[in-house]
Write a protein that binds this DNA or RNA. Sequence first.
RNA 1: GGGCGAAUAGCUCAGGGGUCCAGAGCGCCUGCCUUACAAGCAGGAAGUCGGGGGUUCGAAUCCCUCUUCGCCCACCA
Length: 782
Amino acid sequence: MPATTLAPRFDPSAIETSLYERWLKAGVFTADARDGDAPYVIVIPPPNVTAVLHMGHGLNNTIQDVLIRFERMRGREALWLPGTDHAGIATQNVVERLIASEEGTQRRDLGRERFVDRVWTYVRETGNTILEQLKAIGCSCDWSRTRFTLSEEYSRAVLTVFVDLFHQGLIYRGHRVIHWCPRCLTALSDEEAEFRDRDDHLYYIRYPLVDAGDAEESVVVATTRPETMFGDVALVFHPDDDRYQHLLGRSVRIPLTDVLIPIAVSPRVEREFGTAMLKVTPAHDANDFEIANELEGEYETPVIIDAEGKMVPDPARVPSVIHGLERYAARKRIVEMLESEHLLDKTEPYRHAVRHCYRCDTVVEPRLSDQWFVRMKPLAEPALEAYQRGRLTFVPERWGGVYENWLTEIRDWNISRQLWWGHRIPAWYCENEGCGHITVALDTPTACERCDGSLRQDEDVLDTWFSSWLWPFATMGWPAQTEDLARFYPGHTLATAAEIIFFWVARMVMAGFHFMGKQPFDTVYIHGTVRDTLHRKMSKSLGNGIDPIEVVHRYGADALRFTVIAGAPVGTDVILDPNDLETTFSPGRNFANKLWNVGRFILSNLDGPIVPADRWDPTQFELADRWILSRAQRAIADTTEALERFRLNDAANIAYHFVWDDLADWYVEQVKPRLYGTAAGGEVARAVLSNVFETALRLLHPIMPFITEELWQHLPGAREAMLVTAQWPSPRADLTDEEAEDRFARVQALVSAVRSVRADYSVPPATAVPAVVQPSSREALE
RNA sequence: GGGCGAAUAGCUCAGGGGUCCAGAGCGCCUGCCUUACAAGCAGGAAGUCGGGGGUUCGAAUCCCUCUUCGCCCACCA
């Protein structure tokens, strides 16, 4: 008797690993590109190759697994394509720290080639960590299709895209002020330079007027960055500002220097801010760069801060005492000097948003440089249209507005990074003086295509997102025309967090349209963020994280999954308490145990032949039978609808209450006399019990795959089959019985009244108390 | 500066014009080791649904406003 092998307390660790192995061995997660019904495709948001699973991954991947298992059970050929992202800056930083602490070396000591080798070694050693962890939480990815954004095949796709876009005029080399991280020593895109509020000061600096014959001797300019003033080329005021008209065309001297700069006008000046006089520093401020370009006449772009954020030793422009000083140290020193020369009018505290490197949190330094850009407007058009015509849906809908707004306001994308870890840009510069041609090609060219001169490859690599935006099709073999592409592109649902709508989601849609002619998915499910009880985002630095693997060890993968799914309604964040895992995961843990025990009870009472549903005789049903069967149909319909509408928490709760309240608390109790033979109808009871329990297992399987599979294995007649490939149930109209549901409520009321009295089902039905649930009393109620 | 979201029991949250809309889980109180389950069972206490206005026969639910939190976007240096 299989039931006797079930332990009285549910022990997930005893079943999870072996069940997962069985699934893998049976190949049930592998999608067939040639056969099967209509496909359903999800591509995983590839975690960083250095990542270790955190709760955010746990939530994100559980959601995807619920969806993919649901559709798999519905008979679709389900493909969940997994993989990892090489994560340029992040990975390079990790390995840099590693070699610094373990070997005491710097990246530059090793040189490019050896450093990249070192990163590869690291990636080979640890790169599978997170994928293995996904298995521990039950993710049913098609591991035979695991991809990596820096693999040889994938790199081919990335470089192809670069070359194609270049030849289409959609990639160009631009000279402008970009966001620069002086710590990572690389350029960043607008999205990678995140705004964060900072408490700074607004310094009012006096620029002495040249040839000041009258009373007015200086012009006061407000700035947050006095250290940049040595790079000033002009002061400007608004053309309509009457206060300054008399200064137009005159010159001032940059304080602490002998450099003279003119006073001009620009409509970009905000007349309400500061003194309404703006210093123009074209090499160190993107806005100023634009202003300088618009001014009449030629202006230089003096660089006075270097790549590492230090003051340049330029004797003509920068006072020698601050040469080589770090920018903030320089600021402090400059302010002191201005004060002592009475050139600092005043200082005000000032809170404003400043861009920071999204990888290391260093304040970004605007820097004038040559970078590669993607012309985004033309690519954005179809992505915008798809949304506006309703072909791309966001859940919840409000995120669509965010997507739309970004695409509407889109600016060109800086894709070159001054890193070593990544796809090296396939562009070669001619070394012939005066040629200046750039050869862009997929395969390494031997000579300049214009003058046959020798070539030097661009040192830079591509932004990581320039590879991940191709994920939905580059993972399927593009640019080759593969079977996978034909069958599995386009996909269907993308599940991710709101913070990467710009980085990834919108760009994938653009790339999908441009290179495949079709959008890569139709629905973007945006789930919430995992936070602690103070509503702070869980993070390593705050130490408020929860290790999903620890939760799996303590309470099981099913408990983890159920808890996060039930606690993650559409559009809301998930709050978990890292200091009290016991309480936090109790909903899932308790429910898993409940399911285990009701399963144990039911299974132990299913000996002997079970009448299959197609040979039932409805006239033998008691009210309770009709009631629970009807409740089951309702649970099927409601759970299905909830999952279709991405209301995963509703699905979890519907199934929960069906199992706990309807099945365990009422039906199982009602049926005991019949099972124990103290009432007639044991065969009917067993048939219904078996059928309803089976339904419950199917409904719960996407959310709690392990425990449901294990119990399924013990069902009579189901031992060879696996639940993971079982059919999703459909509600049967002939078993739906609202009258029974209505009337059962009255039975429940009566049962409830006597429930506190000990019910001894071994006593024959003549006994007053349990008689309530007997057929005779049921009839009496009607 | 612009936009979005949230405020419901001690905690985490469902619900989104009318009886089933005042709910769930956890916590709390009372009684139970009843042969599936003490990670349980049976009972119970607990909220003027953030404040104020309005629409309506009727408002947690719709509108306005205020307050408080959170998030996103943004070239006022």
